[in-house]
Amino acid sequence: MPRYAFRIEYHGGPFCGWQRQAGQPSVQQAVEEALARLEPGEHRIAAAGRTDAGVHATGQVAHADLAKAWEPFRLAQALNWHLKPAPVAVTDCARVAEDFHARFSAVERRYLFRMVARRAPVTHDRGLVWQVPNLPDVDAMREGAAHLIGRHDFTTFRSAMCQADSPVKMLDEISIAEVDYPGGCEIRFTLRARSFLHNQVRSIVGTLERVGAGSWRPEDVAAALEARTRAACGPVSPPDGLYLTGVGYPEEPFG
């Protein structure tokens, strides 16, 4: 059976997350049902990241085995037709080797978190950013974030429900940029690692927000990391501003 990889973007607001859950709409279910309209029968797809409820993606990667040999462009277009009106789109498609696996072949995940600091309510970006009323101290947040880069035990920054075998992860990058935003400022957090723990990104951003607001000192981030207990973590940020933006592989499947 030919195997296909898909690059998928979606607005996470209407969904319980990527993964199928009984009685709740998921992105996985939407894509699998679209596949079933092309090739009748049960389909199961695997994705690089199991994003949570309300989390978005611009570069999720998933794969599926199909009975028919499709031309990738036509397959993507057909899926997009059947995905309507769900806020899900296949932006690229490629035939891949039988041993390609969207999750287990991945060597890097990239996330973006968008925070908007302004007093006026956001309108066009409602549900797509985390809005805070005051401009945070971005330099202090960068100083706090520096303590988290590298290989650490991230027990403090993972959900109590995390199923990962080990809390030890290598965090390759946390960069924080300021971008002009009407009536305020947008702060963009970019995080890059081979893999992440459940709620790790939102836990880190929520903690750094406390640093930016002046409630924490930058060195308090290092103390929280060293504590290796969930109780030491700052508040978990809402999912609205989080995006899975890309997945890296030893060989790029989309050319």
Rank of each mutant, 00 (worst) to 15 (best):
S203L: 02
H11G: 11
V138F: 07
L38T: 02
A48M: 07
L75V: 00
T51C: 11
F100A: 00
G212V: 02
E178T: 14
A67H: 13
A57N: 03
Q60F: 05
S105L: 05
A64I: 14
R3C: 08
D172P: 00
K68E: 15
H147I: 03
P167E: 10
E178I: 01
S215Y: 12
E219G: 11
D52M: 10
V107W: 03
G212W: 01
I45Q: 11
R192Y: 00
L197T: 08
G23T: 06
G246E: 14
A89H: 09
R7C: 10
A78G: 15
V179G: 04
V179K: 14
G246Q: 09
Q21Y: 01
V201E: 04
I149E: 14
L38N: 07
A193I: 09
G23Y: 09
L191P: 10
H11C: 14
S105N: 04
D137N: 15
L112Y: 03
G212A: 08
G234A: 00
I187M: 10
E252M: 09
K68C: 12
D137F: 02
Y111L: 01
E33V: 05
R74S: 14
M115Q: 13
R119M: 11
Q131M: 07
P250K: 12
R158V: 10
N80S: 02
R202K: 11
P253S: 07
P182W: 05
S237I: 00
Q60K: 09
K68D: 04
D65G: 07
F15D: 02
L75A: 01
S105V: 03
K169P: 02
V61R: 11
Q163V: 03
Q29T: 13
P167T: 08
Q21K: 10
E98F: 00
A97S: 15
A78R: 12
P218L: 04
A46V: 13
G13E: 14
D92E: 15
V31I: 15
A48K: 05
A94E: 09
K84D: 12
P25Y: 12
L208N: 08
L197H: 07
D220Q: 13
E209T: 12
V96F: 08
G255D: 12
